[in-house]
């Protein structure tokens, strides 16, 4: 295993996270207007400016905005390292707690969605790609292609109308009905999860399917597949021994990229189903100009994307000896 290459990737990842933190800091500072406006709201700011300017200065001091930029930056870095992200402008609650709480609900939705869809889409794509023009390919491919073209929010609203509103099979939105505990609560949450999860699974399965199918189709034409058949292995054996592992590299990379988006990627579905996860948190925070929340969410999402990209690199290195070699010379 090329430890040098791995170490290099790790350093790169740390550097990128550092950049994200810095950009996060600068983004807010370079926005037009006085930050205090964003903190206390425009109406309040205008009123105070006319009636009691000293209050504005007090707020400025309280948030450390009167100090020079480098000092603000150092304070910011220090606080970030200690996971102190301040309080929400809107609810005045500690940001970290809020974000972590919301994150749980998002993960509850997205982890099963990615696991289910990557297995289902991968398996179907593998079968369909191996027998191009076969029964599975001709039936499933057009359906998947169609699903792939539907925007998430469009499908979410459609499902909401048909299955929840018209047929009344599922709740309109939310996470739980409240007033329940234990097993009943778990079942209730599952019931609320069903529709958003279904949409996420369907849409992601479609894209995983298309990816796996085209990868396997390309691999099927490779010389070593013919050679393996020439050795006397059956179709199934060739698929398992030679095609699967070669298809896995690009596929795992793509799945890991998706995992990078487990925090922010389900925003549209969350908003439509008023699922109180990170997606709705970001959505509400944007509307309310709640910057500490937004900064923290962006940071977490950024770390997630970088982390899973790193994981994809490591997995690929484990699978492909050529990448290990490259790392060794690096």
């Amino acid at each position: 295993m090329g430890f040098v290459g791995l170490g290099k990737r790790l350093l790169e990842a740390v550097f990128i996270v550092f950049c994200i933190i810095t950009i996060n800091f600068l983004l807010i500072r370079f926005m037009p207007g006085d930050p205090v406006v964003h903190i206390i709201g425009e109406d309040e700011y205008l009123r105070l400016e006319a009636e009691a300017p000293e209050v504005i200065e007090e707020v400025r001091r309280e948030y450390g905005l009167d100090k020079p930029l480098p000092i603000q930056y150092m304070t910011y870095l220090n606080k970030t390292l200690h996971l102190d992200f301040g309080n929400s402008y809107r609810t005045k609650l500690p940001v970290l707690e809020t974000v972590l709480f919301r994150m749980r609900w998002t993960l509850l939705l997205t982890i099963p969605a990615i696991v289910l869809s990557s297995l289902l889409g991968g398996w179907l794509g593998l079968r369909a790609g191996w027998r191009k023009g076969g029964l599975l390919d001709s039936i499933v491919s057009p359906i998947m292609l169609f699903l792939n073209t539907i925007p998430t929010n469009c499908m979410a609203i459609l499902f909401l109308m048909v299955f929840a509103f018209r047929m009344g099979l599922f709740p309109i939105g939310g996470i739980t009905s409240g007033g329940l505990s234990g097993l009943e609560k778990a079942v209730d949450i599952l019931w609320h999860m069903a529709l958003p999860l279904m949409i996420l699974v369907i849409l992601r399965t479609a894209s995983y399917y298309m990816l796996m199918r085209s990868t396997v189709q390309a691999i099927r034409n490779e010389e070593y597949i013919t050679v393996a058949q020439g050795k006397g292995f059956s179709q199934g054996q060739v698929l398992r021994r030679h095609a699967l592992k070669n298809a896995l590299c690009p596929y795992l990379t793509s799945v890991c990229m998706q995992f990078g988006h487990i925090l922010g990627g389900s925003m549209l579905v969350e908003v439509v189903f008023s699922w109180k996860g990170m997606g709705t948190l970001i959505y509400d925070a944007v509307n309310a100009k709640d910057f500490p929340i937004l900064q923290t969410c962006f940071l977490f999402i950024g770390i997630c994307v970088v982390g899973f990209n790193l994981l994809a690199d490591v997995l690929n290195m484990l699978i492909d000896p050529r990448l290990r070699e490259e790392g060794r010379h690096a």
């Binding site: 020439g230 292995f233 179709q235």
Partner: peptide, 27 residues
């Protein structure tokens, strides 16, 4: 039948592919 053929391939008939292609699985 496919099953009979796979008994013949490799055991009775050897196949050698083109020189330029990747006849060996890279992994």
């Amino acid at each position: 039948r496919e099953r009979e053929l796979s008994q013949i391939r490799g055991k009775e008939i050897a196949y050698i592919p083109q020189g330029s292609g990747n006849g060996l699985n890279p992994l």
